[in-house]
Every structure is written in structure tokens, then in C-alpha cells.
Design a protein around this nucleic acid. Structure first.
Length: 591
RNA sequence: GGGGUCGUAGUUCAGUUGGUUAGAACGCCGGCCUGUCACGCCGGAGGUCGCGAGUUCGAGUCUCGUCGGCCCCGCCA
């Protein structure tokens, strides 16, 4: 039969079971493994649903058997035949279709294939640049395709959930204005306005607020965002957000809606999670975990031991305290067993995180052991142990520095120690809301305040007077959702009051004129009856990475880029014709 | 911009102190094979050791530079 004839499959390659025995089926798929016995030929036929063994027997159909000899890896086949139970003792328990096989009486080669650059069904994972160049073959290996299929199911479920919650999906422009704050923009030159540029959106932030002013009430969008910054294992230059904005809501309502959505997402992935999620303040997160996205799957919490240390004779640490610093400690579970080298490595690691050094004391059944115990009385050591909740067998580690450095350093050490000590349960999904972020941060380089979230984030009402006295103390009505130490979402209640907005711009050192020049359209809108509103955005790629148990965000994105922002498949970015540049009024000037 | 690590056959990797003709497994090609499913057996092809300099009688191996993959810092919500 000619292969131009259309073949209609009656079953897929993953569904045949013992109950189908006797049925005549037509299957299509890719030839995986061929086991050619000269006479009998077995072929594993693959499609995204599974693998079914087909048997080509010369006694059944000579021409199909003949054709089987020319089949090679990844040929596209169509076969028709009877489902049969495998002979006694030849069933394959490792395959879901392993009880049956299809005895082929007609076979078609729908397409041939070159030998793939890597073996599709192999356990070995090829180098990532090879995988990216032949992304479609990498997908055909299976796991990646499954991640994408799950991702598709999840976005569909998110849409269904949000629609039932009264949300409407609205698309916002991809070609928009460059925003002054935040990440570096990707720019797109305008042909019709030579010399002017669009920017790709870092997020739909301003548009979704305008939709609230419009009275849409509840908006969402599953959309691409673009940030021209360096890549990481969890960062791509273009990524997808589940973006939401709601009118007439507060933090608790946002959390409730989001928790329902996240629970639905995890349910789809076959994982049960507990809601509501715990909430901690930013201040607590920083104090106890040294991070605004704490991993709470394990302990190793940070303690403030400045008090007892101040009563000791340890000059080096005391000097830090006298100059306004702090001493923070972590009791490393089982760390008393660390070798000298392991401790030295830990000290080196602390230094790479900005600490000047790392003091340590082993807590053993025989007492405290360290070269620095002589500076401390037993009472003080007991007091430190009590504060840090150290038990026998632990290693107490100390960082004396500014609060910022000490907490950051110990926060990073607790992560690497937990990994090293096997304290992280990979099957756990530990969510936590982090609330009450500071409204402002101080940019030492530019010598001015900058918005920690963005300039439209509302301050906590009772903190508003602090604009005049201590702006850094103002708490924002901002919240993040952290999962296993990864920030998967963040948002805030927005300012809808023009006078508060003015104080915010003033604090940022932005004149009315400047603000008007940059965000005039939003400020205008806020004056036409903007409802109280707020929102949040979730990083879909990061969420998918964790749900799928992947190491890298690239494993849940169909066509990702390398760390240099290059796509080995399309070889983008690439040069363009002179003509294209001329039309845009651009001239190349590389130095 | 900086630090780390890797780059050897189509793929995954090994390659000793710098020393003869650079190996293995899988894959590929040819042959044989009727119950395999990591099929088996016989035979074969396949290498710019990322690239460029340097040191050396001699470099896959040492040095420097450079390009690329990955991880991290800076950057980035």
C-alpha cells in the first residue's frame, strides 16, 4: 500500500491491554528498538502515550516482514494487525502494554529518518547544547514532552479555576514603553517613528492596573515577560507569568484565591498539599532564615547571640558588636563530627559570602570544643547554646558582621549545609507567604531610595507618617510566595490614593514632572476613580520546575536559551540585512 | 564584569609521570539468526583530542590566550 494513503489510527501506543486481545487495530508511531531475528522481527512502536511491541512474522505477511528489515531507528510507521496475548512466559512486566503485542498484517513506512545524533531511548542524557540544537529529538525522548504536557494541563486548569473565580483573561501589549525602574529592557526599534523604541514588557504591571480602573474587576493573563539580565538555572530572558489583578480586595483575599489555584495545580500533578500556607513577615524571614524566600523544609534557623557574646572576652567578635554589628549563630545538626578540613571549607565558603571569618564551637558530650572556648565562660556558652538551640553533636557556627552580611552569609550556609547533610526532603512542598516587605531600599551607589517592589506598592497605612522620619522602616503591603526556597510569586496591594502616590515618588527622589513623564498615563488613570486594588504574579516556569522535580527551568520550557542567551536550534540572535537596519534608521557601531 | 567546572568517535565517557599506532560502551554499516524486549553471534567503518599560540626531541596530557556548555557572584522579583 502506498504511504500517501491516509492511515487512521484506531488506538495509540500506550493503551492496549489484555482486554483488547482479538481486536484488529491500526497504530502509528515511531520505530524505537528493532529486534530482528531474521525471521521474526519485533519493533517497539512509540508515540507519546507509550510503547507497544509489534511483531512482523513472515508467515503472517511476507511483505510487512520484508519492510521490517529496512526499518531503522525513528522511522515513522503505520501498522495494522490483531492484538494478541503474548505467548506464555514472554510478557514484559516493565511495560504497561507488556501483556500484549500486535501481529502485523499490513505495514506502511510513513517516513524515514536519518540516524539521530543521539540515541532517543538511551538512559544517558546528552550534553545540553546537543539537546537544545535537536530540541525536537530531545523532546521525543519522553521526559521533556511529559513536562510540557503537564504544563499545558496546568495552564488549562488555571484558566478554568480563575474563570470560575470571576477573572477575565485580557491580553496586554508586547510592544510597549520602556520602564525606568527594574530590569534592563529588551528594545524594539520603531520603523514608523525612526529613533524611537518599544520595549518588551518586563510584566504587564501598568496595564493590569489600568484594567482595574476600567472596572474589569478581576483580570488574569498567562503571558510572556522579558528581562534582559544574565541567566541562571532558574532564569530565562523570556519567561511566563500567571498574572492577576483584583479590585476591592485585601491581602487575605489574594492569598485565599492563590492558595486555591496552587492547590488545584498540585492536585493535577498528583500531589496533595496543605492550605492555607503559613505566613511570616519579611523581618522574621530575614532573622531566622537569612533570606526573603526561606526554605522551611528543614531547621538550621539563625539566632542572635550578640547578648552573651558581648559578655565574653572574645575581642574580635566584641569589636564587631561595638561598631554596631551583630553576632548570629546556627546550630548545625550533627556538625560536631565535621573534620578539620570540612570546617576549613565551611570557613572558606563563609568568606565567599562576604563574611570576614567564621567562628565555630563543637558541642560534644565531653563539653564545648574549639580553639575559641577559652574566651567564653561555661555559663556564656550554655546561654549561647540555649539561644541557638544547640544539642550535643551539633556544631555552632558564628558570623560577626553587619546584620545584613551576617544574616545573608548564614542564610546561604544553611542551604548548602542542609544539602550536604541530606536534611532536605525532596518529596516535600513547603510553601510560605512572606509579607510586610520594606517599601523602600537604599541604593548606596545611586545614593537614593528605590522601590523594593515597584513604585505603585501601597505602604501599610499606619507606617505612612514614616515617610517624613524613617522611610526605610515603612512596611509595604507586598507579599511573596516562596516554595522550597524559591520565590514562585509576588505581588502587592497598590496605591490608589494620589496623595500617597505623590509621597512615594517624592521618597524616590522623583519630581512630579518626572513621574508624570514616566508614568503619566497611569497617574491620570488613578485620578478617574481607581478602585482599591492589588494583584500578584506567579512564575509559571519556576513552579513547573519544582512540580516536575527538575533541576533547571530549561526542562519545562519547550525552546529555551543557553546561559549566553543563545538558541542553538534557531541560532538566534543573528545578524540582519543592511536593508533591515536602514529601514529602521539604525547603523551598526560595535566597539 | 568576575569565580568555578567541563570540552577526546554520532552519544556517554576512560586516557597513568609528557613517550610507539588515542581506547571502551552504546549507536552506525554489512552478514547470520522465529520469542526478543539492554535480543544474541560474526565482521567493519568511524577522531581537526573545541580553536590558536607557546614550552619540549616529543603535547590529548604542561603554560597562556580564545570560543562554547553548565553552576555561581554581581545583575535580576
Amino acid at each position: 500500500m502506498s504511504h500517501s494513503e491516509s492511515i487512521r489510527r484506531t488506538r495509540n501506543c500506550g493503551e492496549l491491554r489484555a482486554g483488547h486481545v482479538g481486536e484488529t487495530v491500526t497504530l502509528v508511531g515511531w520505530a524505537r528498538k528493532r529486534r530482528d531475528h531474521g525471521g521474526l522481527v519485533f519493533v517497539d512502536l512509540w508515540d507519546r502515550h507509550g510503547i507497544t511491541q509489534i511483531v512482523l512474522n513472515p508467515e503472517i505477511d511476507a511483505s510487512a516482514h520484508e519492510l521490517a528489515h529496512s526499518v531503522r531507528a525513528e522511522f515513522v510507521l503505520g501498522v495494522k494487525g490483531a492484538v494478541r496475548a503474548r505467548p506464555e512466559g514472554t510478557a514484559n512486566a516493565k511495560m504497561s502494554t507488556g501483556d500484549v503485542e500486535v501481529y502485523v498484517d499490513k505495514a506502511w513506512i510513513l517516513n524515514t529518518s536519518k540516524t539521530p545524533p543521539f540515541v532517543i531511548e538511551a538512559d544517558e542524557t546528552p550534553n545540553e547544547s546537543v539537546r537544545l540544537k535537536y530540541r525536537y529529538l530531545d523532546m521525543r525522548r519522553g521526559p521533556l514532552l511529559n513536562n510540557l504536557i503537564l504544563r499545558g494541563k496546568i495552564t488549562t486548569a488555571v484558566r478554568v479555576y480563575l474563570e470560575t473565580q470571576g477573572f477575565t483573561e485580557v491580553e496586554t501589549p508586547m510592544l510597549t514603553r520602556s520602564t525606568p525602574e527594574g530590569a534592563r529592557d529588551f528594545l524594539v526599534p520603531s520603523r514608523l517613528t525612526p529613533g524611537a523604541w518599544f520595549a518588551l514588557p518586563q510584566s504587564p504591571q501598568l496595564f493590569k492596573q489600568l484594567l482595574m480602573v476600567a472596572g474589569l474587576d478581576r483580570y488574569y493573563q498567562i503571558t510572556k515577560c522579558f528581562r534582559d539580565e544574565d541567566l541562571r538555572a532558574d532564569r530565562q530572558p523570556e519567561f511566563t507569568q500567571i498574572d492577576m489583578e483584583m479590585s476591592f480586595i485585601d491581602e487575605a483575599m489574594v492569598r485565599e484565591i492563590c492558595e486555591g489555584m496552587i492547590a488545584r495545580i498540585f492536585e493535577l500533578a498528583g500531589k496533595k498539599i496543605q492550605t492555607p500556607f503559613p505566613i511570616m513577615t519579611y523581618a522574621d524571614a530575614m532573622e531566622k532564615y537569612g533570606s526573603d524566600k526561606p526554605d522551611i523544609r528543614f531547621g538550621l534557623k539563625i539566632s542572635d547571640v550578640s547578648g552573651p557574646v558581648d559578655k565574653s572576652e572574645f575581642k574580635a567578635l566584641k569589636e564587631t558588636l561595638d561598631s554596631g554589628g551583630t553576632v548570629r549563630a546556627v546550630a548545625v545538626t550533627g556538625g560536631a563530627a565535621f573534620s578539620r578540613k570540612e570546617i576549613d571549607d565551611l570557613i572558606e565558603e563563609a568568606k565567599t559570602h562576604g563574611a570576614k571569618g567564621l567562628a565555630w564551637i563543637k558541642v560534644t558530650a565531653e563539653g564545648y570544643q574549639s580553639s575559641i572556648t577559652k574566651f567564653f565562660s561555661k555559663e556564656i556558652l550554655d546561654e549561647i547554646s540555649a539561644i541557638a538551640e544547640a544539642k550535643v553533636g551539633d556544631l555552632l557556627i558564628f558570623v560577626a558582621d553587619s546584620k545584613k552580611v551576617a544574616l545573608d552569609c548564614l542564610g546561604r550556609l544553611r542551604l548548602s549545609l542542609a544539602r550536604k547533610l541530606g536534611m532536605i526532603d525532596d518529596s516535600k512542598f513547603a510553601f510560605t507567604w512572606v509579607a510586610e516587605f520594606p517599601l523602600l531600599d537604599y541604593d548606596a551607589e545611586e545614593k537614593r531610595y528605590v522601590a523594593m517592589h515597584h513604585p505603585f506598592t501601597a505602604p501599610v497605612a499606619e507606617d505612612v507618617p514614616l515617610f517624613d522620619t524613617d522611610p526605610l522602616k515603612i512596611r509595604a503591603r507586598a507579599y511573596d510566595l516562596a516554595l522550597n526556597g524559591v520565590e514562585i510569586g509576588g505581588g502587592s496591594i497598590r496605591i490608589h490614593d494620589r496623595s500617597v502616590q505623590n509621597r512615594m515618588f517624592a521618597a524616590l527622589g522623583m519630581s512630579d514632572e518626572e513621574a508624570r513623564g514616566k508614568f503619566g498615563f497611569l497617574l491620570d488613570a488613578l485620578e478617574f476613580g481607581a478602585p482599591p486594588h492589588g494583584g500578584i504574579a506567579f512564575g509559571l516556569d519556576r513552579l513547573m520546575t519544582i512540580i516536575s522535580g527538575c533541576e533547571s527551568i530549561r526542562d519545562v520550557i519547550a525552546f529555551p536559551k543557553t546561559q549566553k542567551g543563545f538558541c542553538p536550534l534557531t541560532e538566534a540572535p543573528a545578524e540582519v540585512d543592511q536593508k533591515q537596519l536602514r529601514e529602521l534608521g539604525l547603523k551598526k557601531d560595535l566597539r
